[in-house]
Design a protein around this nucleic acid. Structure first.
Lengths: 224, 224
DNA sequence: ACCTGAACACCGTTCAAGT
DNA sequence: ACCTGAACACCGTTCAAGT
C-alpha cells in the first residue's frame, strides 16, 4: 500500500514548468507532435489537463517552450576558432538537434516569439562572425544563407517519401506503376542509377552543400 | 425570389474535386491554414461537411491536393536555356508561388505523397540539368542544395518576428526590454545598424544567396 | 497555491438515411 | 450518384469549485 502510495506521490511530484516541458518533448519524440495534446500530456504526468495551465499560458506557450529547449541543445559557436570551422560545427549541431527531435522543424515556422535560448544562439553566431572581421552586411548575407540551407535541408529530408535506403526501392517501384509508362524518366533515372546504388545516403548531401556554401562565402569575404 | 433561388443554385453548383480544392486554397489564403476545416470549407461551398468526402478521401487528401495545385503554379524550367539561368528562374518562380500561398511552406513537410505536379516539376528540373551535361551525382548535389536553400529561405522569412520594415523597429525595441540590458549585443547591432537602415529588405537576401550558390555550383561543374 | 470537474465550442469522421 | 443529419471520439480552454 505504501509503495503504491509513494508511486502515486512520485508520479504527482509537484509540477513545474520544466517538468511539463520535458514531458512534452518526450511525448512528441516518442509519439509524434500530433500526439502532444493537453489531455495526453496531463495523463502522462498523472494530472488532469487543466493542471498544466498553472505552468503554461496555453498550448502556444507550451510549444514555444519546447522549441526553445531544442535551441538549448545546440552548441554555441566558439569565438576563437576560425569562423568557417565554427559555422561548420554549428550547422552540424543544429542538424543533430533537429534529428533528435524530428517534430521540431515542423513547428518552428509557426513560432512568432523566439525564446531566450533562440536569441542567445543567434547572438552568438553573429558575434562569432563579427569577431572574425566580417562586415555587418556580410554577416547578414552569411547568416541568411547558412540558416536557410540548414533548415531547408532538414525540411527537404523530412519531405522525402523514403527515410531508409531500403524504402527507396519500393518508392521507385510505386512511382512508375500508377502513371503512364515512364512518365517521369529523369526522376526514374536519378532513383535507379544513383539514389538506389549501394552506399548512397541522402544525408551525405548535407555536408557537400554546407562546404560549397562555406567556401563560396569565404571567397566572397576574401574578395572584399 | 428567382434571383435568390438562382444564387442558391449557383452556390450549390455541383461539387467537383477541383472546385473543392480551389475553395480550400482561397480559404487558406484568406484566413490562414488553421481556418481550413472541413466544416468551414463546407460552409464556404454551401454544403454540409460530409458532402466534401465524396470528392476527397479525408483531410490529408485535401491538403495533398492543394499542395499539388501550388506546384502547378510553378513554371517548369526550359531545356534550351543555360542551366544556371533556368535554375535561377525556377527558384524565383517557386518563391513567388510560396509567397502567394503563405500556408504552403508550413504544410509541405508533413506531406508524404508527392502529387503529379510535384513529380512533373522535379522530373523537369532533373531533366534540365542532365540536358545541360551535368553528371548524375552533380545533379543530385545541385538539386539538394538549391531546394534546401529555396524552401529554407521561405521558412526563415516566415519565422522572422517581423514582416514589414515598419515592424522591425518595435521588435528591436521589445527585444531589449524584458532582458537584462544589452543581453544580446550583436543581435541588437545587427538590427539597429543594418536591418533597420532605410532600404534594407530581408527579401533581397534571397537573390544574394541564390547567386552565391549558383556560381559555386558552376565552378564545381567547370572543375570536373 | 495548486489541482479538479463539468461544461462549451469546436474538430475529423462513421454510419444510416434521404432524394 | 450525391448530399444530409445525427452521433462518436476527440480537441483547447473557461469558469467555479475544491483542498
Amino acid at each position: 500500500m505504501s509503495t503504491r502510495a509513494s508511486a502515486q506521490t512520485q508520479r504527482r511530484a509537484r509540477l513545474t514548468r520544466d517538468r511539463v516541458l520535458r514531458a512534452a518533448i518526450a511525448l512528441a519524440d516518442e509519439s509524434g507532435i500530433e500526439s502532444l495534446t493537453m489531455r495526453r500530456l496531463g495523463e502522462e504526468l498523472g494530472v488532469g489537463p487543466m493542471a498544466l495551465y498553472r505552468h503554461v499560458r496555453n498550448k502556444e506557450d507550451l510549444v514555444d517552450g519546447i522549441v526553445d529547449l531544442v535551441f538549448e541543445e545546440i552548441g554555441l559557436p566558439s569565438i576563437d576558432a576560425d569562423w568557417k570551422e565554427a559555422m561548420r560545427r554549428r550547422a552540424i549541431s543544429v542538424r543533430e538537434a533537429l534529428s533528435r527531435h524530428r517534430w521540431a522543424i515542423g513547428v518552428m515556422e509557426s513560432r512568432l516569439n523566439p525564446g531566450p535560448a533562440n536569441l542567445r544562439h543567434h547572438d552568438a553566431v553573429i558575434g562569432c562572425l563579427r569577431a572574425a572581421g566580417l562586415a555587418i552586411a556580410m554577416v547578414a548575407h552569411a547568416y541568411s544563407l547558412l540558416d536557410s540551407y540548414i533548415y531547408g535541408f532538414a525540411t527537404t529530408q523530412m519531405n522525402l517519401p523514403f527515410q531508409t535506403p531500403e524504402e527507396v526501392a519500393e518508392v521507385a517501384q510505386s512511382m512508375l506503376r500508377p502513371s503512364p509508362l515512364n512518365a517521369y524518366p529523369h526522376l526514374t533515372e536519378m532513383l535507379t542509377d544513383h539514389v538506389m546504388k549501394p552506399g548512397y545516403d541522402y544525408g551525405d548531401e548535407f555536408l557537400y552543400g554546407l562546404d560549397v556554401i562555406l567556401n563560396a562565402l569565404q571567397q566572397a569575404q576574401n574578395a572584399s
